[in-house]
Design a protein around this nucleic acid. Structure first.
Lengths: 331, 331
DNA sequence: TTGTAAGCGTTATCAA
DNA sequence: TTGATAACGCTTACAA
C-alpha cells in the first residue's frame, strides 16, 4: 500500500537486472556508468528510493538510536536533545525519543528498543536500577547501552559526562578569589550514589582551602519550586548572621527558584547579601534578571563522543570532559 | 549478531512448528492452550521476543511516528513532546524526533521518513513550503502527514490546533472587562499566512467593541531577546501618553522578554502602567516574578486527536480545539 | 562488471 | 487448530 516501487520495478523499466539497481544505490557500487545512468533515470521516473526497513532486516543495523529521558522539565536537556538529533542526523542516524515514566520504565524501554532492533540506547541524565542488569547479563542480546550526562552504574556501560571535580575546583577558585567564605550547597536529590558528585567535590574543594561547608540544603528534586521551597525553609530557620554568603546550587533550575525566594521574599540583594552559582547554563541564567554565574557542560563534545562510540569511531570507555565557567553578576 | 533467538529456535525447543510460536505472540491467536504453555516456557528460557523489524517488513507498518521540530527553544514545545511521546507509547507507538535545520529541511526529513517507512509524519508547529507538495502530489508514496499546533497549508493534510478566534474572544472579553482600552499586539513573525492568526483575531475582537488596535509590534522571531528588543524599540519611540495599556503577545516567550524590558528598563509597573498577556502557559509564566495572564492550548486533546487520526480511530479532518484562559496578575 | 542463490524473521494465505 | 508455501525488499556471499 505504501511504497509500491521496488528495485525490481526500476530494473524492469531500465532494462537491467534488479541487482544493478540495488548496487547503484549503495556506497561502494561497481556498476558500469551507462547502466548507472539508465537506472538513475528510471528511478527518477518511478520515484524509487531503497526501502531502509528491508535493508535493516538484512544488515542487522537500523541506523536508529534510542534516547531515554525521564524528566523533560529541565531546559538544559532541550539543548542537548536538539544537538543530539542534529548531530545524529548529520551521521545518517535517527533518534527515537523514549519517555520514561511510571507506565514505561527503564526495563520496558530497553526491551522495546531491543525488539525494534535499535542500534544503541542512550540513557540521558537518567539512572537505571539494578533490575535491568539481570536481563542484560542473561543471554538476552540488547543493543549497546551508553550513559550521557550521568555517572554510569556498570563498568561495561560507558558514560560520558562533565567532569564535576574539575568544575567544582574552578568554581571554588572563582568564589574564593571573590572573597566568599561561608559556602552552602543546595542539592536536588539525596542519592549521592546516583547523583553527579557535585556536592562532594564542592565540599572537597573548600576543604582543601580549610573552609568547611556551612550547610547542605536538600531540595528533593530538580524543580524550580523545590529550589524555592528549600530556600524559603532554610532562610526561615537560619538567623541572618549564620547564613552563608554563597549558595552553590546543583543546577540552574534550583538556583533560579532559590534566588527568586531570597530576593523577593527576604529582600536580599544578589550578590551582596547572598551570591548564587548554578550549573548547566540554561537560557534563563543569561537573562538580565538572573545573570547567574554557572558552569556549562561541554555539550557538543559529550554528544560527539557518544556518537563516536556508537559509530565505532572511538573506543568504548567512560569519559569526563571539562566544561566552562560562565561568570555573571550573581557572584 | 544481535538477536540470535528466532521463532524457529523456540519452536525447536518447545517441540512445535514455528508458526505456533509466531501465533502465540500475536493478538488474535488461535493456539491450543497446551502448546501455548509449552511455547511460553521455551520462549522464557531462550529470552525470545518477536523481531519487530521483520514484522514491519511483512506488515508494512512500523509503529513509528516521525515528529518534525524546527525550533527547540520554546518551552511549550517540551510539554507537547513529553505528552506526545507518552501518549504514543501508551498506544504502542514510538516517536522519531526529527530536527529540522539548514542541513535537513522539510523535504529531506519527509523523504527520509518515507524511506524508513514511518507510519505517519507530524509537523509540529512548523510550516512547510510549497516545494514539498510537488513531491507529495507526484506518484511518490509518502507517509500520511499531519500538522500539529499550526494552521495546515493543504486541504488534504489535516491539522489540529488551538482555536485562535475563540481564544482571542475570551482574552479580549477579559481585558475589556478589566477596563483596558488601548491594546497593542506584539507579533513574532510577519508571515500572517503561515502564522497562527492570533493578531488578526485579536484585532477583530476589539473591533467588534469599537476599539482600534493601537499598534502591531514586530519582533521578527519567537525568542525572548526578540520580544525584549522589539519592546525596547517601541517604548523608546513612543511617548508615554501614546502608549498602550495592554500588550497582547503572540506567545509567552515574547511576553517574558517584553515584560522584562518594560519593568527593568522603563520602570513600569505591571499591570498598572502596562498589562501583558501571553499565549501557551509556559512554566515561567506561572513564576511569581511574571505571573503572566496567558492562554493554554488544549494539549492533551490536540495530541489525542492527532494520534486518533493516525491510528484510524478518528476520521481525518482538521480541527480547532478550545483552550483555556489563565488569569494571573499581569492583567 | 554482472547474475544467481540463499537468507534476514516475520506475516498472509490457504489447504489440511 | 495446524502446517506449508509464498511473499516483504533488501544484502551478502559466490559464481559467471
Amino acid at each position: 500500500m505504501r511504497k509500491v516501487v521496488t528495485a525490481k520495478d526500476v530494473a524492469d523499466l531500465a532494462g537491467v537486472s534488479k541487482w544493478i539497481v540495488i548496487r547503484t544505490f549503495r556506497e561502494g557500487a561497481s556498476v558500469s556508468s551507462e547502466k548507472r545512468v539508465k537506472v538513475e533515470e528510471a528511478a527518477k521516473v518511478l520515484n524509487y528510493r531503497p526501502n531502509l526497513l528491508a535493508r535493516s532486516l538484512a544488515t542487522n543495523r537500523t541506523q536508529q538510536i534510542g534516547i531515554l529521558v525521564d524528566d523533560f522539565s529541565n531546559p538544559y536537556k532541550w539543548s542537548f536533545l536538539e544537538r543530539f538529533t542534529e548531530e545524529a542526523q548529520e551521521r545518517g542516524l535517527v533518534t527515537v525519543l523514549i519517555n520514561l515514566n511510571s507506565n514505561f520504565n527503564h526495563v520496558s524501554a530497553v526491551l522495546d528498543a531491543a525488539q525494534r532492533q535499535l542500534d544503541a540506547i542512550v540513557l540521558f541524565d537518567t539512572a537505571f536500577r539494578d533490575e535491568i542488569i539481570k536481563d542484560m547479563q542473561m543471554g538476552e542480546h540488547l543493543p549497546p547501552l551508553y550513559v550521557l550526562a550521568r555517572e554510569g552504574q556498570f563498568p561495561d556501560v560507558p558514560s560520558v559526562l562533565c567532569d564535576s571535580e574539575q568544575a567544582m575546583k574552578e568554581i571554588v577558585e572563582h568564589l574564593a578569589g571573590k572573597g566568599y567564605k561561608r559556602p552552602a550547597f543546595l542539592s536536588g536529590t539525596e542519592t549521592l550514589q546516583l547523583g553527579l558528585g557535585r556536592a562532594l567535590y564542592f565540599q572537597q574543594s573548600w576543604a582543601s582551602r580549610n573552609v568547611g561547608v556551612v550547610a547542605t540544603i536538600m531540595a528533593g528534586s530538580y524543580r524550580v519550586e523545590s529550589g524555592a521551597d528549600a530556600m524559603r525553609c532554610f532562610l526561615n530557620r537560619t538567623p541572618a548572621m549564620l547564613r552563608p554568603d554563597i549558595i552553590m546550587c546543583e543546577n540552574d533550575v534550583l538556583a533560579v527558584g532559590a534566588m527568586d525566594v531570597a530576593r523577593s521574599e527576604f529582600g536580599m540583594r544578589v550578590p551582596q547579601d547572598m551570591a548564587f552559582v548554578g550549573f548547566d547554563n540554561i537560557p534563563l541564567a543569561a537573562a538580565p534578571s538572573y545573570a547567574l554565574t554557572t558552569y556549562e557542560q561541554p555539550r557538543d563534545q559529550m554528544i560527539g563522543r557518544i556518537l563516536d562510540m556508537i559509530g565505532g569511531q572511538a573506543t568504548k570507555h567512560s569519559t569526563r570532559l571539562r566544561g566552562r565557567l560562565i561568570e555573571r553578576s550573581s557572584t
